[in-house]
Design a protein around this nucleic acid. Sequence first.
DNA 1: AAAAAAC
Length: 483
Amino acid sequence: MTDSFSNLSLAPTLARAVAEMGYESMTPIQAQAIPVVLTGQDVMGAAQTGTGKTAAFSLPLLQRLLKHENPSTSPARHPVRALVLLPTRELADQVAQQIKMYAKYTQLRSAVVFGGMDMKPQTLELKKGVEVLVATPGRLLDHIEAKNAVLNQVEYVVLDEADRMLDIGFLPDLQRILSFLPKQRTTLLFSATFSPEIKRLAGSYLQNPITIEVARPNETASTVEQRFYAAQDDDKRRVIRKVLDDRGIKQAFIFVNSKLGCGRLARSLEREGLRTAALHGDKSQDERLKALEAFKKGEVDLLVCTDVAARGLDIKDVPAVFNFDVPFNAEDYVHRIGRTGRAGASGLAVTLVSPSDARLVGDIEKLIKKKLEVETLQLDTRPAGPAPEKWGERAEDRPRSRASEGRRREHDPRDALDAPHERRGGFRPAPINRDPFFQKPYEPAATDVPPSWEPSGPKTVRSSISANIKPKRKVAALFKSGE
DNA sequence: AAAAAAC
């Protein structure tokens, strides 16, 4: 077997840990990346999540740390020799835990630092000395400024979820961190998606990189069944319930685009009797951890989350992912649905599409190079009542419909719980909410928008409609009367 | 149109 770990001649200490974890054969990304990383060359690696990416870079990295002692450091000191950067705290934690397991029988020490936790224990660990440091950017900069972390001996730097690390929100911090590292070093970049812009930008951080692509990048796992259902906002929860019922699905991730919407949707579902937890960046780290744990243990069935949970989280057996909101970036769609159908399991990804989302669906279609059909799911309990509300109206102005009557308040005091939990600011630049690497300016064609956005009449139900060509018009048409 | 990442 050529793809066996035993053919790698890993250090016995590493081989033992790998064997103990039950790994025998390598995944494709491991089989391709490990030999290259062992040579010390720069790597740009594209691989779906759930394909063993972490082992693909950490095993050869640990091997090199073991075999190639840095001559400029005395054995008594333990400078940081490898730095692994990730875009979310949960990911940093997860990757750090894996590295700890791989390094279990070596003398190499590792540590993880991220925000939302007390600095002191992290500082103590850093002062003891670690060879491998896993971190999120903000907290790492704190430790650098406090002189807790000295990075001038770093030989290897890994940017996981590299497309996110290189986007405008992270780039200033990342550049600052990189400015503390020696120029002479190995740089490894890994991501499930690589847009051409990111590839170009990444090139400026790499020296003669070897490109490794296992699954074609930006391609979604073939084990995931992808569905797009047209739904007005008020119907979305019922569509979710119906899909869960029809398919007998117990657990799911539900992605939304905003933190406020996350808390609200979680409470709505909870009120409807579903066991739900919310996960977003304004929750305390403790709440974030608890939400994730509760979902892993099966104490809650639905995890309503923002894109904080879109990348890399390795939770076994998530049978379904719902996109309550269509993601603003098509790349995020690929990452979100990557939460299901992991490691060869089958998964379901349902995206709920409202008329204004048509362009976003078109973007997704282009990215994954797959023809998408927006279907209408017949809701069993839908009363054959009056015409649906106008699309243009604000939800608050509309008469309350059906079951939500009297239950909803315009200002739920618990929304205050979703207020920023931690202070942000300081030297960070003002938030820029556009992402030039991913966003292309949208200029509607003359024919793109219907002349008048009429209130819709009785909704016609169609079995399916192709969003392949001019998706904006097609999907919008789905909501228009009598077409 | 948003989210993420620090005290």
